[in-house]
Amino acid sequence: MWRYIAKRLLSMIPVLIGVSFIIFTLLYFTPGDPASMVLGEQASEEAKNEWREEYGLNDSFWTQYFRYIKDIVTKGDFGDSYRNGRSVTSSLIDRFPTTFLLAVCTCVVAMLVGVVLGIVAANHQNSWIDAIARVFGMIGISMPMFWFALLLIMFFAVKLQWFPVSGFYGPRYVVLPAIALGLTHAASLMRITRSSVLDCIRQDYVRTARAKGQTEGVITRHHILRNALIPIVTAAGTSFGIALGGAMIMEQIFAIPGLGRLMVDGINQRDYPIVRGAVMLLALSFSLVNLAVDMLYAYIDPRIKAQYQGASRKKQKTEAEEVQA
């Protein structure tokens, strides 16, 4: 198992290098001159050139790229902001916990509502509660989350004044963005959970369990749910990525000082080191979450675990089996 984790961690390296290359290339060829943005159009060509020299922007593409990678790998240095010369790494460290918290809260809301509703709906297929769940699922996957967020603000922040409209100064400030993002995502989780559970309900081993005289409670919890979990866990992993992306919009709407706002501001101000750093960090955390999801698979499903434990043991098994049969 540990060997597998190590292997997966290693295989993340080329992916992350690929991400860095894509994002670096994209921003390198972006039209618009950072020097003019930072120093103003009126600044002398000399001053601009000096500024470019300072940030190494006069070097060739490959020199710049390899320097960028080298600094990250050797010093954990993502460069300095064009705007204020501040270290990007420290800005990222400042902002990341907020975004991460928001994404986690979102996932919690999405999992709680989506998975529970999905299970209940599947267990009462074609009942009124199933109908409600399906309507919720359809609306949820179709509603743009930023609009839903605005509606929530309109109702809970402006009309009822239960929650603050914007800012980020405590738990109360997380509620609306987490609900806005979480509920829209709960919808798709609900749909996946429902169909996954429905699929498992029809399996032969569930009938076997009934024929054993097992109680319905244990059948649902143990035989159905544990088997239905795999697609659900996959979806939960994806949902974390969506939550990270969605957090960028929520931060914009609710004026939350997170990575997303840092990045959008960076884009508007042509502050590329910030944008690159934010994308890299988000991709890294997304990859780590997906790795964790893969680990969970192995815990849930012995068939997947067997794949991890190398082919040699498996071969021994089949041979032994043949001898016996």
């Binding site: 992916v15 992350l16 690929g18 991400v19 894509i22 994002i23 994209l26 921003l27 990525g241 969506i242 990270l244 992306g245 969605g246 960028m248 919009i249 990045m263 959008v264 884009i267 944008v275 994308v279 988000l282 991709a283 997304f286 990859s287």
Partner: peptide, 10 residues
């Protein structure tokens, strides 16, 4: 490895 919306934004 890059969340969808993030990629679109970039």
């Amino acid at each position: 490895a890059i969340p969808n919306l993030l990629l679109a934004i970039a």
